[in-house]
């Protein structure tokens, strides 16, 4: 049994690519066979986030146009046995692929991999329609901002119209201190409004930026809070019931916990 999951958001810059990379690496770290598909054609990103940019020979459009076989276009990550990337084309645009081709491609990947995870471009136009065409499930990423949640709401409507029901929500870049001070919408506020299931909450974390700079994924950083958040998300995707972690780390105990490396 394989799962084909699209990671989408409507708004750009909320963390789709970061989420895709970390979920992929996290699943692979647990021994699963995973392929990540960069569907952001024209704005290739996932390769650099994963540190695989120097190894690309063929891309997704080479496959759909028949210039190479699917296998040839897949890049194997050397750090995680079982993690592969199908890169986007950089020099073409969204119209280079159509939903029918994506469906076929996803079907072929699902025959080889346990998880097919698709990194969706921002927007709700053709790039979005391509990215969701072959998916069976959707993860919607948002941040605690009015514009991001509004776009998430729109995308949830479009996903449901496309028969991708019950998308799961990830709230990214939450800042517990601001939430506590009433200066940022919290988890309940957002869930209230969007009325969807919560898959996880990822705190704002410098370590995301630092690891991304290096082409690494924070999910493998045992001591980072965002990494812990992603590891929890990965286990929830596998069907485990993992309680939401306590993000508020401000008190004395929180600091102590952090110092001694307990999360």
């Amino acid at each position: 049994m394989s799962e084909i999951i699209v990671v989408t958001s409507g708004k750009g810059g909320v963390g789709k690519t970061t989420t895709t990379a970390n979920i992929g690496a996290g699943l692979a770290a647990l021994g699963h066979k995973v392929v990540l598909v960069d569907a952001d054609i024209g704005l290739r990103n996932l390769d650099v986030v994963l540190g695989l940019e120097n190894r690309i020979v063929y891309d997704i459009t080479d496959v759909t146009e028949g210039h190479c076989r699917l296998r040839q276009a897949l890049i194997k990550d050397k750090r995680y046995e079982g993690l592969f990337l199908l890169p986007a084309a950089q020099t073409k645009d969204k119209t280079a692929v159509n939903p029918e081709q994506m469906k076929k491609l996803c079907g072929e990947l699902a025959a080889e991999f346990e998880y097919v995870i698709i990194d969706c471009p921002a927007g709700i136009e053709q790039g979005f329609r391509n990215a969701i065409a072959g998916a069976q499930k959707a993860i919607v990423v948002t941040t605690p901002e009015v514009a991001a949640v509004r776009d998430a709401d729109r995308v949830i409507g479009l996903l449901e119209a496309a028969e991708l029901r019950n998308p799961a929500l990830i709230i990214n870049r939450i800042r517990p201190k601001m939430v506590r001070h009433g200066d940022m919408m919290g988890i309940e506020d957002i869930i209230d409004i969007l009325a969807v299931d919560l898959l996880g909450v990822v705190p704002e974390d410098e370590l995301v930026v630092i690891s991304t700079n290096r082409g690494e994924t924070v999910v493998s950083d045992e001591r980072s809070r965002s990494g812990q958040a992603y590891r929890n998300i990965v286990r929830r995707i596998k069907g485990e019931a993992v309680p939401m972690m306590n993000l508020d780390d401000s008190g004395f105990l929180g600091r102590l916990r952090r110092i001694i490396g307990l999360k």
């Binding site: 901002e145 709401d153 001070h181 009433g182 200066d183 919408m185 506020d189 409004i193």
Partner: peptide
């Protein structure tokens, strides 16, 4: 609290959307 302002604005904009 600005979060309440955000929440209320969001609620209204979604009513329209």
């Amino acid at each position: 609290a600005s979060k309440n302002v955000a929440k209320e604005r969001l609620r209204l904009v979604l009513v329209h959307d």
